[in-house]
Computed example of a mutant assay.
Amino acid sequence: MVNTLSTSIANAAYSNNWFDASLSCKKNLQLIAIRAQRPVELSALGYLPLSLETFKEVMTVTYRVFALIREMIQ
């Protein structure tokens, strides 16, 4: 959802009434549009992109380790 919404920021900046705005406002809107070209992505320490698929994989590994430790204790 964050990824989808982040792509609409550039369109929102362009759809603004920028042609009647001051020069500083135009520059700010231009910077917003340029930075919004690349979609936002949540990541863990900049290495691993966070998604539902990543969460499922982490939870699967966590459960396997938990089950292994539980088996070793019993």
Rank of each mutant, 00 (worst) to 15 (best):
residue 70 R to D: 10
residue 12 A to Y: 06
residue 53 E to W: 12
residue 22 S to Q: 05
residue 52 L to Y: 11
residue 24 S to Y: 08
residue 54 T to A: 15
residue 25 C to M: 09
residue 24 S to M: 07
residue 23 L to S: 02
residue 73 I to N: 04
residue 33 A to Q: 11
residue 50 L to Q: 05
residue 2 V to K: 08
residue 16 N to R: 06
residue 6 S to C: 01
residue 8 S to Y: 12
residue 63 Y to L: 12
residue 51 S to V: 08
residue 15 S to D: 11
residue 26 K to G: 01
residue 20 D to P: 00
residue 53 E to Y: 10
residue 45 L to S: 08
residue 15 S to R: 12
residue 67 A to M: 09
residue 53 E to D: 15
residue 53 E to N: 12
residue 33 A to G: 02
residue 71 E to C: 01
residue 72 M to I: 10
residue 66 F to E: 13
residue 47 Y to T: 11
residue 54 T to Q: 06
residue 24 S to E: 14
residue 12 A to I: 15
residue 66 F to C: 05
residue 72 M to H: 08
residue 33 A to P: 00
residue 71 E to H: 07
residue 3 N to H: 06
residue 33 A to K: 15
residue 28 N to A: 12
residue 10 A to H: 08
residue 55 F to A: 14
residue 35 R to H: 07
residue 58 V to H: 08
residue 19 F to L: 06
residue 53 E to V: 09
residue 74 Q to A: 02
residue 38 R to K: 14
residue 7 T to A: 02
residue 24 S to D: 12
residue 55 F to N: 08
residue 46 G to I: 15
residue 25 C to V: 13
residue 26 K to M: 07
residue 59 M to C: 05
residue 1 M to T: 13
residue 19 F to Q: 11
residue 31 L to V: 05
residue 18 W to N: 01
residue 25 C to K: 12
residue 8 S to R: 13
residue 12 A to S: 10
residue 31 L to E: 13
residue 40 V to D: 06
residue 31 L to T: 12
residue 45 L to I: 09
residue 54 T to M: 14
residue 4 T to S: 04
residue 74 Q to K: 09
residue 20 D to L: 08
residue 4 T to C: 01
residue 17 N to Q: 06
residue 4 T to R: 10
residue 60 T to W: 10
residue 41 E to P: 00
residue 17 N to L: 03
residue 54 T to C: 06
residue 61 V to E: 13
residue 70 R to W: 12
residue 42 L to K: 13
residue 52 L to G: 06
residue 24 S to G: 00
residue 52 L to N: 11
residue 58 V to T: 10
residue 72 M to S: 05
residue 66 F to K: 15
residue 50 L to E: 04
residue 67 A to I: 04
residue 73 I to M: 08
residue 64 R to G: 05
residue 72 M to V: 07
residue 28 N to V: 07
residue 4 T to H: 03
residue 49 P to C: 06
residue 62 T to L: 11
residue 21 A to E: 10
residue 22 S to L: 02
residue 7 T to V: 06
residue 33 A to F: 14
residue 31 L to D: 11
residue 23 L to Y: 04
residue 6 S to R: 03
residue 44 A to W: 15
residue 73 I to D: 04
residue 58 V to E: 09
residue 39 P to W: 07
residue 43 S to Y: 08
residue 51 S to N: 14
residue 15 S to H: 02
residue 47 Y to L: 14
